[in-house]
Nucleic acid binder design. Structure first.
Lengths: 231, 231
DNA sequence: CCGCCTATGGTTAGAAT
DNA sequence: GATTCTAACCATAGGCG
């Protein structure tokens, strides 16, 4: 977990794997101790090492018997009801990651459309070569932007006219230039968002490839998507 | 674990405790998943929440049965042999902390003696009011310092005389002034070391007060110790 | 192999919404 | 209460002795 992003795969080297096992086992025990102390609950962990002699590990010896006892009479009455097992944990993680991915794509799409919009406005691009999806999103973006600008103007000039004057000779001061700052904000593509998107996709595609690994999520990072993420 | 050093005690507030439980339980599951993946071992954890419905948690469902099976036939053959349970974990932690504490006290004692030495040398203090322990350590410190200085001089002036000249008019250059830098180093009391010492003492005295809580370790942070830590 | 160190990534308490 | 954000703390991989 240091000097590099951890890649969640089996460590081939024996010595490294054992070192990691030892460190992480200690870390885990510490965490369990903290959890039981902080939250006043019972918990146990069993870690089965292949070259044992310290074959199992737990936070407590008698404690585990209680926990195990409670656990063993569980399946009959709750029978996989809301059991928070690995499967549930993983699908929950995946759902979260998907949701985050959707949001980030949406965000990126907005940025792209803003960029496109201002390219068009500054005559660097004509709208001729845009397909229907892009045109539709562009139109949506324009509406959204206009609405935001209006709201900003109303909020920042409550004492003056609520209508937009077409700059009738009066010089703008810093407070009364919401348009400028808005445009400045929109003009930046959010690289951060793109990185986050990649992370989210990693955490879906990587981590053991437990679900449909590539077909569904392996989209390119290019700027054109096949669907309309905005609506 | 944020914005404050964690104090390892039961969280009184219900909402906070539950929030912490949820977050940490997730963190724990993640860690166990990582451990099993990275090290290719089997492990399970069971966390028993009071207001259950998600009464237990594990990394896997069938996996636990295997681990439990292996565990259940263990006591007879290994019978608490090298079982790495909570008790062993804690006493190991305590031993580590003690060892660290000893080292840090030692280090601090050195610094103190250095300071004292140079106070004496600069006539800010006379050796009259020192007890036997301090005098003994001071003497030891002087020997040590002289030895280090000699070694530094020999190392840094291999081409010149190996003996210490008493500054016969030749101005020292930066390279040939080991004495100066040595003295500068010694003159600083290492506040960092004192803080670390406090941390180590916390980790022994706190954390549930499982061992002799105060009598043995609860020394003051003052500059005089009852025993001779140097030898 | 074992322990120490440190840069860095990961975790999370508290706050904001 | 749930979700998100973020500063700060913690865990740990890799390097060194």
């Amino acid at each position: 977990m240091a000097r590099k992003r951890l890649d969640l795969t089996y460590i081939a080297s024996d010595s490294k794997r054992n070192a990691t096992l030892k460190k992480r086992r200690n870390g885990l025990m510490k965490k369990i101790n903290e959890l039981t102390t902080l939250c006043g609950i019972e918990a146990c962990a069993i870690i089965s090492t292949p070259d044992d002699l310290q074959p199992e590990v737990w936070p407590s010896h008698l404690g585990v018997q209680r926990v195990l006892y409670k656990f063993c009479r569980m399946p009959e009455m709750e029978k996989g009801k809301k059991m928070f097992n690995q499967e549930n944990f993983l699908s929950q993680s995946i759902m979260k990651a998907r949701e985050q991915l959707r949001k980030l794509r949406n965000e990126n799409r907005k940025k792209e459309m803003s960029l496109l919009l201002f390219q068009c406005l500054s005559c660097e691009n004509s709208a001729n070569n845009l397909n229907m999806t892009n045109l539709s999103d562009l139109s949506w973006m324009i509406d959204l932007t206009l609405k935001e600008i209006e709201q900003n103007i109303i909020k920042n000039q409550p004492q003056q006219d609520a209508l937009v004057s077409t700059n009738g000779g009066e010089p703008m001061n810093g407070e009364n230039a919401p348009l400028v700052s808005h445009v400045q904000g929109l003009m930046q593509i959010n690289m951060d968002a793109m990185q986050k998107q990649n992370l989210a996709m990693d955490s879906i595609n990587g981590g053991g490839n437990l679900m449909h690994p590539t077909r569904e999520f392996g989209l390119s990072n290019g700027m054109v998507w096949n669907e309309n993420y905005l609506h």
